[in-house]
Design a protein around this nucleic acid. Structure first.
Length: 586
DNA sequence: GATTTCACGTA
DNA sequence: CGTACGTGAAATCC
């Protein structure tokens, strides 16, 4: 253990240990400094850890290894853009599936220990955590993160290592896991890739790590919102901001009364109670199993109540979820809408976001606007899932169809059906839909694209049988046990889930690789501000917007060439430069 | 008080 | 009998 009191010592120590560009270097924070590790070199640096890491990045360009990209937060807040990282929580989820990713679990699995015996966080610590580290009952070195039984010592993940020395050991433990993960990724099957290029699973690990880092950045910087427009749009729907609870209740009752007045004697019906609404509909002769909008839609002409109810629901959505409370809570004084982001969900690996960032109603999108002197560059992948299917299944016939800007046109021609039918059939195949009018066209797909259809069927059968599936990039997607006696519907549902997961998951991997490559290539003042499954929003200086637009196309080309190497599949993006999100056609 | 159901927004 | 997510209100469970 070396205590580096200057950043010069720190850089020299790492360089002497063989650290250069791309070398994994463990990093962990303590309250009063930072610890770094590579091989046998453990460096404890008290003081301004952020500045120390910044100097190390500038001098050596290593790949920072952390237990989770949450550790990037101090760097992100300080404006440090980390180029290369390894996120153990992310690679753990990639390799093993599931959504649990606490360090004790990640460590236990990587070390071959029984995760059930790992130390638990929170109150359970008090019951099962044993004596306090370093206490008279615990002779172990208090800076040692590994317990005598081989498990991680609880508590550090929550509160951080107590000292820079302890942080260096925590960083060294992270490096141990990183090496195990890299080894495990290396044994994943990797077909159709050029010799000499990094294995796809390793590229995915890098990309997923960067996506977690991007998620932290997105959470810190937020989405630029024009508050005045947002307020106007909310007011148009639910009226002016109520000054107190009484006026709020009055406005609410006013909206309710406008609907209830359409049916005599309905003055006291609770519109927020689905059972009451269903009964109300029954009184005007409309019998529905539930009161969802899509089920009410066919009855628009039957009674004025239906249209009023659907409209009321939209207003109610704005009033409750996207109203003044939302603006007050989630939009900062700087006009940025902030939520918490994750780099991957627990299922197929899409990014998630809270605070409405992923489900903002279209009618509020005009409020998402570039700041003065800036523009938004919006880009979305076109028909990404069928193109991904062509790549991951290795279906050459479907790959040829991706040469067309509109993939469904050549598919329709091949199947001798019209375009809408072809589209429905392809989507039905990928999502496991079995009802509707896609039947004949589905049989056409089986004949025209047997490789792709076999790939989907194999995933479906695997899921139905309870076997985990693995995405193209190497993500393990876990199935779940079914309750006895096994319900055929539940089996089929698991099959559909697996069938969808291999497509949606691979699409998420491609999207994230694109997003993080864009992030890495952007000019300094341009920032990714939103990721939405197949859509990217970049906030860029006016003068650089066209350059960024070109970059989005270029980076997609290079990313797809690496990701889908040898498949012949073409990916396309629609890119536009706009002031407001809504200016772009989605 | 915590969990489930219904509903609905996005992809 | 398409998948996933996050959110809020009411109902339900304990």
């Amino acid at each position: 253990m070396t205590r580096a009191t200057t950043t010069t010592d720190l850089v020299a120590g790492l360089r002497a240990a063989g650290v250069g560009a791309g070398t994994p270097v463990g990093v962990a924070w303590s309250a009063d400094g930072v610890g770094l590790a590579h091989g046998d070199a453990l460096l404890a640096c008290p003081g301004d850890g952020v500045d120390a890491v910044r100097r190390v990045l500038e001098a050596l360009r290593p790949r920072l290894v952390w237990w989770s990209a949450r550790d990037a937060t101090p760097l992100v807040r300080a404006g440090v853009r980390v180029a290369s990282s390894w996120d153990l929580a992310a690679t753990h989820c990639l390799l093993h599936g599931g959504s649990d990713r606490d360090p004790a679990l990640v460590w236990a699995v990587a070390r071959g220990l029984d995760p059930a015996h790992r130390p638990r966080t929170g109150q359970l610590d008090l019951l099962a955590g044993g004596p306090a580290p370093g206490s008279a009952d615990d002779p172990v070195d208090p800076a040692e993160p590994v317990r005598p039984d081989g498990h991680l010592r609880p508590g550090w993940a929550e509160h951080g290592p107590p000292t820079p020395e302890a942080a260096a050991r925590w960083a060294a433990a992270a490096l141990v896991v990183q090496a195990a993960h890299e080894r495990d990724l290396g044994v994943l099957p990797d077909t159709r890739r050029s010799p000499g290029t990094p294995a796809l699973a390793l590229l995915t690990a890098w990309s997923e790590s960067a996506a977690e880092l991007l998620a932290v950045e997105l959470g810190v910087r937020g989405l630029p919102l024009d508050r005045a427009t947002a307020i106007r749009l909310v007011e148009e729907r639910v009226g002016p901001r109520p000054v107190d609870a009484v006026t709020a209740a009055a406005a609410r009752a006013g909206r309710d009364d406008a609907v209830r007045a359409l049916v005599p004697g309905a003055e006291d019906v609770d519109l927020r109670n689905p059972a009451s609404v269903r009964a109300l509909l029954g009184r005007v002769g409309i019998d529905v199993p539930d009161t969802r909008a899509w089920r009410l839609e066919p009855f628009r002409g039957t009674h004025p109540l239906v249209a009023a109810l659907i409209d009321w629901r939209q207003a109610e959505r704005i009033a409750t979820t996207y109203g003044f409370g939302w603006l007050d809570r989630d939009v900062g004084p700087d006009g940025r809408l902030r939520g918490s982001w994750t780099g991957c969900d627990g299922a197929a690996g899409r990014m998630t976001a809270s605070a409405g960032l992923h489900n903002l109603p279209a009618e509020l999108r005009p409020a998402v606007a570039a700041e003065p002197g800036m523009l938004l560059v919006r880009a979305d992948l076109g028909q990404v899932e069928p193109r991904v299917l062509a790549a991951v299944s290795g279906d050459d016939a479907l790959a040829r169809a991706t040469g067309d800007d509109d993939l469904y046109a050549p598919v329709a021609a091949r199947l001798a059906v019209d375009r809408p039918t072809a589209k429905v059939a392809v989507l039905a195949a990928m999502y496991g839909q079995t009802s509707g009018a896609a039947g004949e066209a589905l049989r056409g797909l089986e004949r025209a694209y047997p490789v792709a259809m076999d790939y989907l069927r194999a995933a479906h059968e695997s899921g139905a049988a309870g076997r985990d599936v693995t995405t193209y990039g190497g993500r393990r997607v876990r199935m779940w046990p079914l309750a006895e006696p096994v319900d055929p519907a539940a089996t089929a549902a698991r099959g559909r889930f697996a069938r969808n997961a291999v497509v949606q998951g691979a699409a998420a991997e491609l999207f994230k690789m694109w997003a993080v490559s864009v992030r890495a290539a952007l000019p300094p003042r341009a920032e990714v501000v939103l990721c939405l499954h197949d859509e990217l929003l970049v906030h860029a200086p006016e003068q650089e917007a066209d350059q960024v637009a070109a970059l989005l196309h270029d980076v997609l080309g290079s990313t797809a060439a690496r990701w889908a190497a040898g498949s012949g599949v073409r990916f396309v993006a629609d890119v536009s430069v706009v002031r407001r999100w809504s200016d772009a056609k989605g």
